[in-house]
Amino acid sequence: MRPFAFKRAAAPADAAKLVAANKDARFIAGGTNLVDLMKEGIDRPNELVDISRLSLSVVRSLAGGGVSIGALARNTDTANHPLVKKDFPMLSQAILSGASPQIRNMATNGGNLMQRTRCSYFYDLGTPCNKRQPGSGCGAKDGLSRYSAIFGWSDSCVAVHPSDMCVALAALDAVVNVQSPDGRERKIKFTDFHRLPLNSPEKDNALNHGDLITSIDIPKNNFAANSYYLKIRDRSSYAFALVSVAAAVELDKGVIKQARIALGGVAHKPWRASEAERFLVGKKAEPGVFQQAAELTLRGAKPLSENKYKIKLAERAIARALRRAANV
C-alpha cells in the first residue's frame, strides 16, 4: 500500500507547522472525504496530521451576538446546537440536507469547507482533470456536464463546489478564522474563502498549504424568522445538489429591509447573488418581486451543453426559496 506517516498535533499552531513542513502532508479531521480520495488514489499524502483531538469543537456565542462554530465541531452537533437552531436555522437546514446521518456524525465543519468537488472526471484517474492533475485538461466541459457550473467557470474547469453548509455560510456573511504556520491568525470573509477556477483549478480556496481553519464566525443578523434552504436533487436524500438556494430576508411590515441569496451546485464556489439582494431592498415581499430577483440572478449564467436546465431550475428555486423564507 501507499505508505504514510500518521502524526497527532498537540495544538493548532503545531498542526499548522507540521503540515507546512511537508508539501505532501494533510490534516485529517473526520476523514469522510480525505480517506475516500486516498483510496481512489486521487490524493496521495505521505503524512497525515490528525487534528481531530484539538479543542476546536466548541460552538459558542460571540460578544455582540452571532455565533462561533469550531472547525472540529461535527456537522451533526453544529446543526443541532440550540444557538444555531435558534439564530441561524438556515444553517441547520443546510447541514441536515447534506450527506447522511452517519457521515454528518463524522464530518467536521472545517472538513466541510475543504471538501473537494464531486465532478466525476475529478474522481476518475482514467480521464483528464485539471483540478486533479494540472495541465491534463478538463473532461467535463465538453463531456458530461449535467452537474457542472453555469457561473464563473473557465476553460480549465467547470466543477462545482459540493457543500450545502457552505452555501448557507456564504449567505450569512460568515468569516473563517485561520491559524497560519508562522503563528499568525487571520480572518477570511466567507465569500472570499472559496475561489473561482481561473487557470488554477487545483486551488479550491484562499488557504495556503499548512493553514488551519480554527473556527467560523457568523455575525448577528435578523434573518432567523425569514430564511430557508432549498436543495434540489435527483433523489430525496443522500445526493448532491443539482441546485440549492440559501435565501433570507429581513422584513419590516412586508417590506424587505435586507436580503441574502446564495446558490449551490452552480459554481466553483457558493454563488452569492449580490445584485438580486440589492434589488430586493425596499421592495414588497411578494412572489412577483421574488421572480424578478430570480431572473436577475440568472441573467449572467453561461450554461454548458448538458446543463441549460439549471438556469430555469435555479430561477424557480430562488423564487421558491424566497417565498418560503418570507412566507408569501
Binding site: S120, D124, G139, G143, L144, R235, S236, S237
Partner: peptide
C-alpha cells in the same frame, strides 16, 4: 448509467453517482 461517449467510459460507477432510491423516496 452515464457514459462519456467521446471515450466510451462509464462516469458514475459508484453508489454516490448512480442513484437508486433511498428510504425517503
Amino acid at each position: 448509467t452515464e457514459i462519456d461517449h467521446r471515450i466510451g467510459r462509464i462516469m458514475n460507477p459508484n453508489l454516490a453517482g448512480y442513484h437508486v432510491p433511498v428510504n425517503a423516496d
